[in-house]
Amino acid sequence: MTTKMLSSQHVEQIKASAPVLAEKGEAITTRFYEQMFEAHPELLNIFNHRNQKQGTQPKALMQTLYAAAVNIENLESLLPTVKKIAHKHVALQVVPEQYPIVGHYLLKAMKEELGEAASDELLEAWGEAYEIVADIFIDAEKELYQETKDQPGGWNGFRPFVVDGITKESEGITSFYFKPEDGETLPTFSPGQYITLRVLLPDDQYTHLRHYSLSDAPDKDHFRISVKREASPDYPDGEISNFLHDQLNVGDQISISAPAGVFTADVNADDPIVLLGAGIGQTPLISMAKGALEANPERNIDFVYTTKNEENHALLEEMNVLNDQYENFRPHVRYTETDAHVDKELLHTIIEENDGQKFFLCGPGTFTADMKDILEQDLGISEERIEREMFKPFV
């Protein structure tokens, strides 16, 4: 954690501004992004264009600002969030020189949106607070960049890969296999991590970056992702997934940054695990299952999964192979045409049969929230035993 400290006066000013951020935070962050991109359009090569259009990126930044204001006296409490965002930033190749740009336009947007409430003293306090938070991120990211580069087969930046294989897994989900163009080795990764693809669409001025969970075990000669087609080819919000499905071919080159992410399972541990997934949320979970069983064939794993029907069940064959190979791998599949749901009776049975597990939840936000509530409130599972991943933007 940084050694810089805010004065007690600045701390009080920032804490007092928390209610205003709750009220006007989204307006501030929306204006911030608009003005920053107008002055620095090159940053559109990093930020997710879809999240800008849908407003999810401003909302994510607003929530981070509000959390900083509320916890300004105890920034250590934000470290888990800092770590997660730092991994995203390293995957996107964010550099320290970009932080002053963000700070300038953030304070500018605050001043314009808050009007008379934005006193010189408040802006000065937030300026200092931003520098402290920026330093925390820069230090964390510097360490991650070094670790990523120094590991065997590791690299920084975007490395050219070649598409080595494409497999249609189910209705709407396709797996893509990538090998390094230079033929050199790949680094290992922790099951649950993702890679970031850099895509330049035809007739588009700026690149698009997308995170995709690795869906195979580590220590192979390839990376594999399994991608859900979002909407239809003429629906702009699904343009990258549709590009991959419709235009990416075996032999094509694509640029990829090194594996990152904190939603991971320790494959060398012995404790039993329960993997809870819905829809495309199973991709990091199948990687966890395969990685854990390859490292420790005796490890107990319950794989609870729900999707609409068998036609939408991607990687079903791999689940069946694991079921045939390992007596201690237990799949629990539910096909539901309505909202993804797993009943608590099933979870209660799993817990009774194998107490002491750690739980990994991945899927739509509503699914992971419901599962977390059932585990904690109905079944008495402590928060420390639950890891949860949702597909949503981070600032």
Rank of each mutant, 00 (worst) to 15 (best):
Met319Thr: 13
Ile351Met: 06
Leu6Phe: 09
Ser255Gln: 15
Phe263Glu: 02
Leu244Met: 08
Arg330Glu: 11
Thr188Pro: 11
Pro364Tyr: 06
Thr3Asp: 07
Phe360Arg: 12
Ser190Ile: 11
Val70Trp: 07
Gln193Glu: 05
Phe360Leu: 03
Lys142Tyr: 11
Ser170Ile: 01
Gln193Cys: 05
Lys392His: 11
Thr188Gln: 07
Pro202Glu: 15
Tyr66Leu: 09
Ser226His: 07
Asp237Ser: 15
Pro100Gln: 04
Glu97Pro: 10
Asp135Gly: 13
Gln253Leu: 03
Asp339Phe: 14
Tyr177Trp: 15
Phe32Ser: 01
Leu21Ala: 02
Asn156Leu: 12
Val250Ala: 05
Thr148Val: 14
Ala86Asp: 05
Lys15Asp: 10
Tyr99Gln: 00
Glu317Leu: 06
Ile173Phe: 12
His332Pro: 13
Phe189Lys: 03
Glu73Pro: 13
Trp126Gly: 06
Asn242Cys: 07
Ser17Leu: 00
Glu169Cys: 13
Leu44Val: 04
Ile381Trp: 08
Gly281Arg: 14
Ala140Leu: 06
Gln9Leu: 12
Pro259Leu: 00
Val162Phe: 10
Gly291Val: 01
Glu143Ile: 09
Leu78Pro: 02
Gly261Asp: 08
Ala269Tyr: 14
Tyr66Ile: 02
Pro180Lys: 06
Lys168Pro: 08
Leu114Glu: 06
Asn328Met: 11
Gly251Phe: 09
Val199Leu: 03
Val274His: 05
Gln35Asn: 12
Glu230Leu: 10
Leu61Gln: 06
Ile28Val: 13
Ala292Leu: 02
Ile195Asn: 04
Ala129Trp: 01
Arg385Gln: 12
Ser119Val: 05
Glu318Pro: 00
Tyr206His: 08
Gln282Val: 15
Arg385Pro: 13
Met390His: 04
Trp155Met: 10
Lys88Ser: 09
Gly183Glu: 07
Glu26Lys: 05
Ile286Arg: 13
Gln63His: 15
Arg31Val: 09
His87Cys: 03
Ala22Asp: 03
Ala340Gly: 14
Pro160His: 07
Ala265Thr: 15
Asp324Gly: 04
Asn48Gly: 14
Gly261Asn: 15
Val11Leu: 04
Asp373Met: 05
Asn309Glu: 10
Ser175Phe: 13
Trp155Gln: 14
Tyr326Ser: 06
Cys362Leu: 00
Arg330Lys: 12
Leu107Asp: 04
Phe37Val: 03
Met36Trp: 03
Ser257His: 12
